[in-house]
Design a binder for these strands. Sequence first.
DNA 1: ATTCGGCCGGTTTTT
DNA 2: CCGGCCGAAT
Length: 662
Amino acid sequence: MATTGIDYPKELNPDQLAAATAPPGPALVLAGAGSGKTRTLTYRVAFLVENGLPPENILLLTFTNKAAREMLERVRNLLPHDISRLWGGTFHSVGNRILRRHAPAVGLEPGFTILDRDDARDLLAACFPAIGVDPKEKRFPKAGAILELLSFSANTTRPLDELLATGYAHLEEFADALSRLADEYRKRKLASNAADYDDLLTLPLDLLRRDPRLARHYQDRWACVLVDEYQDTNRVQADFIDLVASAHRNVTVVGDDAQSIYSWRGANFENILSFPDRYPGSRVYRIELNYRSVPQILSLANASIANNSRQFPKALRSTLAAGVRPHLVATPDADGQARFIAREILSLHSDGTPLREIAVLYRAHAHAIELQMELVRCHIPFVITSGIQFFEQAHVKDVAAYLKTAFNPFDEIAFKRVARLMPGVGDRSAEKLWQRVRGQSEWPEDIAPAKAVKDWRQLRQLIAQLRAQPGPSVPDAISWILDACYRDMLNLKYDNHQQRIDDIQQLQEFSRRFDSVPDLLAQLSLMTGLDASYGGADDGDVLRLSTVHQAKGLEWEAAFVIMLCDGAFPLGRLIDDEAQLEEERRLFYVAVTRAKKRLYLTFPQMRFGRGAAGGDLFQRPSRFLTELPPGLAEPVQIRIPRETAHRGHRHRDAEFDPWDWS
DNA sequence: ATTCGGCCGGTTTTT
DNA sequence: CCGGCCGAAT
């Protein structure tokens, strides 16, 4: 059996071992936070390969590229086998690979473009006139909101009118226009030879359903399907798994229903709850031994999640010696909270905790502005895993648009983006130009407005050059774009042009690993913020600020969970709906289980000028704190230094008792 | 008729 | 800090 000497019983605990070496057949592995979920899945892959399953017969689906990369890397280190033919990656990247092979069957060319969220919104907005909706009509929903609706509909497979009747009643009066808009949008995507994120999931599934022979091909190929983070799958993803695994029924799904936090994106944690019913005879493995956090942190996490009704009952047990109780810190306001955190971080740091082992987690980016200012003041270096990704920045998207225009002559959004970079060209001129060049391999000369004649000639020549055979290497293509026109454009437009050029050169460096421009473009669209592999941006010893969503799967010695006020975490408008509140609680559970040794739960007792409500607001502590049994956290009395009682706020120089929330 | 600069307002979470 | 809206400039 074993040929490479992996000593499974030695390297895995008994629960992990049972899951990793499970016999063929459907298996559900319920692996709690910090229990070695990735490790187990990695060893499962190794186990299968070692027992004679060729790697090309394995499909490994993950939630992020990073997770896939790490797992495959670890398998490579465990085994001498060549696993390059193993299909591993995110659902979207696997969908992309399938579509590239069978693009014509769904009405696309293999070189199709992937529309990111902004591209998709722009294309949808461009559909408004065609269905006779005035985009200036104030009452009509914005393109972004409609896209969200369409996306939710696609990911949950719930038809538009059903959604409109239930969760989106305020849009119901527009039902007719919205459904025509959806049709138009679908047509325009095909006409642009483009697919949005949702298409990467739905089109392959539709294709396999329509073509049983093709389905059979993939079913045979993937004798074994493994899925990470199964609790975050949506209906389309679950259906895809069910379809490709239906021949062999060798499907291992790993997940933790307590960490399902993506329902707003269509994820349905009923998928994991109902797995045993949908796969009769499946085995269920529980891994509850936690290697990450001290017992006091797990006690709090267990107590919190116990307030949820829909779940597999579970309790994490720590393998670590007792540490300290989580600290519960009330501050007068957000500035006080920021000062407390900064001070505590400096103290942790001087006690030997590197900054990179500390994180501040929050519900929404806006919750951290006061803290950011305080950190700058205290010279504490930090990085934010921002909502804006490297490749979503305007200049990176501009360069991508040049490439898309060159390699996909039907890409309307990319062309218009490039056209509008020329002086004197706005929406109208861009549309006129588009009518003249759509699908053309060669563009007419002198069709641009007077002010852009020179720029048009440059652009025309650049595109011809990029399209010439044999094509340029990917880094060369980017150089050509910079040299032809884009460097000048940046210099004119931005005062931080050097920074932007540096970014593009970093992109160029990253692009070396790709053989073709379409490969690069697809990869760019599918990367996440945490997959920041384009450069060693965050190697230094820096503090991390992150939303809880983006912190999933990560861990730190010390974590601060901040802004724990009712209305901020849980977020205001989600409190009334019991299902959404339970998701917020799962999010809180994810947050607290990121901490290994020290956990701080902080909340300001007052926040200021929050728009709609108007004026200052006294805050209730988060119900996720008040509902906990007493004694799980250590109330910390903080002294507010005198200089903080300024700007007319009504604080006394006093001590605050966080448990006194009368 | 368009473009483009300036200002205001608002913001959940993201493959 | 980004997108949308309005008004001045072309």
